[in-house]
Write a protein that binds this DNA or RNA. Structure first.
Lengths: 227, 227
DNA sequence: ACCTGTCCGTCATAAAAGTGTCATAATTAT
DNA sequence: ATAATTATGACACTTTTATGACGGACAGGT
């Protein structure tokens, strides 16, 4: 988490307001009053999104957007441009040079966050989520459904992720720590033994085929087809 | 806005020319040199149209078209096939398997755009206005009417769009944000939780069959026939 | 312009479902 | 047999969803 958003805006009060809103919503805000300052932030790890004022003193937003869309590092960063009211002309040009959305000042925090989220969602790499199958278990991430021998099985979110991880990483032992990292997510603080409990819940939920979830004493767990 | 058109064509120069023409005309061009690559783009939001080369190295256009017309997500996407001169045979087969138009290489940008627009015009109404049915629920966009087991039910506009979206995208989980995008529209900014409330209103309105609108805890909602 | 009813977004609160931890039983290795 | 490791059931706590209520926006009619 802690996604970085870069603000390019020369007017300090507006910039500070943006920073405030962004930080309220769990983003890390980077400030730049000019294109030069902005460069400083355009290094890895690059921001996930850029809020770009269309009326900067020395250089037009169009030029900035263009140059951003040319750099290898920056060309995939979505841009939301901020325009003053009535600059319709700019909006059109902006979209042409690759801005992903625009927002007319003044705007509410809610609108700002909604647009940011919408743009990020639109740009997000839509992973192809294919259904997985193993010995009668079918797990389909798209419909978020699991069947065992064609009978539907209800799983809680964690159980679902755990099973999905196992099915996509079979025949390999994972320690409890590794499972926590992969299934619960990094920097989550829970007891190792919690894994045991979820394993048990998952085993109970999938019924007879739970022999595929194997305990490897001293090491962890493994998912593997029965031989 | 920013309608996406997917190009499936193995020859890079032709592909690039198509991209150029499309982008000139305000479309967003997606490129694929093979069917595998194309899959990547066949996720929501799906393209509005597909330009499909009839002579791909490994797989014939007919097979691709067939497979596109089978997928729930892709079956309504119109296809314009690109054929080399004189492949009359292919044209006929192409139209049989569901291509909406064909174009003989070489063609002018003007012709390309004209055909694209014509196809989109032709397809737009039919794709949207077809009545949908599922387990006793009939929704007819034309008369804007919904019946459950032949009894008419009254829905508000949002409830109607929501149900329509669900019925045309079954067996798939949608997050609240995705539902907002698809049903409320991209430029509307409302709380996530508003979705819950509309879901409840819709469930109440359609009565017993509301078991088809399923809550997927931690993920969103899904519309699906009862098993 | 003024009702009047519908529709919709938001909030507060209730209800439900899921999760982490612990104590204890069961199993396995040495 | 003893120690180490894993399985299991119970329970408190957290997160997520359902629901009822309220008020504002809007459309159509008067």
């Amino acid at each position: 988490m802690m996604n970085k958003i870069l603000i390019i805006e020369d007017e300090a009060p507006i910039r500070e307001m943006l920073v405030f809103i962004l930080e309220q919503n769990g983003y890390q805000a980077l400030e730049a009053g000019s294109f030069e300052e902005a460069q400083r932030h355009l290094v890895e790890p690059v921001p996930v999104l850029i809020l770009l004022d269309w009326m900067l003193p020395d250089i037009s937003g169009i030029q900035i957007a263009k140059s951003l869309k040319q750099g290898d590092l920056t060309k995939h960063i979505p841009i939301i441009m901020l325009t003053a009211k009535g600059e319709e002309e700019d909006k059109i040009k902006g979209l042409e040079v690759g801005a992903d959305d625009y927002m007319t000042k003044p705007f509410s925090p809610k609108e700002l966050m909604a647009r940011i989220k919408a743009v990020l969602r639109r740009v997000a790499p839509t992973a192809i989520e294919e259904a997985v199958e193993a010995d009668g278990i079918i797990l389909d991430p798209v419909s978020h459904r699991v069947t065992v021998h064609n009978k539907q099985v209800d799983l809680g979110p964690t159980e679902f992720r755990l099973l999905h991880f196992f099915m996509t990483h079979p025949d390999r032992v994972y320690s409890r720590e590794q499972l926590l990292d992969h299934v619960w997510g990094t920097n989550v603080y829970v007891e190792d033994r919690t894994v045991d409990v979820q394993i048990r819940r998952l085993r109970k939920a999938i019924g007879e085929v739970n022999t595929m979830i194997q305990t490897v004493r001293g090491s962890g767990y493994r998912f593997s087809k029965m031989t």
